[in-house]
């Protein structure tokens, strides 16, 4: 069967799937329709070649479940019984109703990638408040499960993330972040804040705002500014530092191999 796309035909065709009754019930990407198509020399352009992909799931993809279970953050995926306590506790769900930890865990359990793909825009929005993990009656640890989800989405739908949501790692922020952790063993929020401001080109705002200036002056006066500078390092920090260093170098090589 010879299929050729009839590029030259200027025949006017309907909008995609326009003639389908109850069109609103069918997802756009489930409709397969070529505007201009010739099969075995017969021109079937337009509605004649319309196909609707089946809306029935024909398998549960358990390999996906196994993959999640092997990760440290997703190891408890088999515990979830879908009570909804996590979504009910969630800080993010009231803001983004489509961010639903319980539903995401279920999709991961059944390996429903087709459905997960629709949530690449919200799937990474967990803020890590851990309210869900604290309340989960089965101790699934949904907060870390969301981390597993984010890793997964990054792995399976890298294009979606790049093209639609500009979720690329900011190398500069990464450098500041790693420098802080390795140098001091803790985060310096003031430093992160100022570097972010600087990055956005808001250098003048940094010092111009009355409140901000006032705050800095106040902190100088009561000695808090000094104590921030004198910030100590965690006990036996060099050992932890070596381990983190090692890990970062290790992941670096891993990424290069890929």
């Amino acid at each position: 069967m010879a299929v050729e796309h009839n590029k030259n035909s200027e025949r006017p065709v309907a909008e995609k799937g326009e003639h389908i009754i109850a069109r609103h019930l069918i997802d756009d990407d489930a409709i397969k329709e070529e505007k201009n198509l010739v099969i075995d020399g017969v021109d079937v352009s337009g509605r004649w070649n319309t196909f609707i992909e089946t809306r029935v799931d024909s398998e549960f993809d358990r390999s996906f479940f196994d993959e999640i279970q092997k990760t440290v953050v997703g190891s408890r995926i088999n515990r979830c019984w879908q009570c909804g306590m996590c979504t009910a506790s969630c800080t993010v769900t009231p803001l983004y109703r489509r961010f639903n930890p319980r539903a995401f865990i279920y999709m991961m359990q059944l390996g429903n990638l087709k459905l997960l793909k629709k949530y690449t825009d919200v799937a990474w929005r967990c803020v890590g408040c851990y309210k869900c993990s604290q309340r989960c009656p089965k101790q699934v640890n949904p907060a870390e499960m969301m981390e597993a989800l984010a890793l997964l989405i990054k792995k399976y739908f890298p294009e979606e993330i790049k093209s639609n949501h500009q979720l690329t790692i900011d190398e500069e922020v990464k450098k500041i972040y790693e420098g802080m952790i390795l140098g001091h063993g803790r985060l310096d929020l003031a430093n992160l804040h100022t570097s972010a401001m600087r990055k956005m080109g808001k250098t003048t705002e940094l010092m111009s705002d009355k409140d901000e200036r006032g705050a800095i002056f106040k902190m100088m006066k009561d000695g808090r500014a000094l104590s921030v500078l004198r910030l100590g390092k965690p006990h036996k920090w060099h050992k932890s530092k070596d381990a983190i260093d090692n890990y970062l170098r290790h992941t670096g090589t891993l990424e290069q191999e890929k």
């Binding site: 909804g84 306590m85 979504t87 009910a88 506790s89 769900t93 639903n100 319980r102």
Partner: peptide, 28 residues
Amino acid sequence: VKGRVAEITSGPDNTVICKGEDTLLRGP
């Protein structure tokens, strides 16, 4: 209603608010 309630807070007019998820309709 299918879903376990995860939080009870005070509400308006001397009520108490049940915060949960309707797991069948997928929503808080």
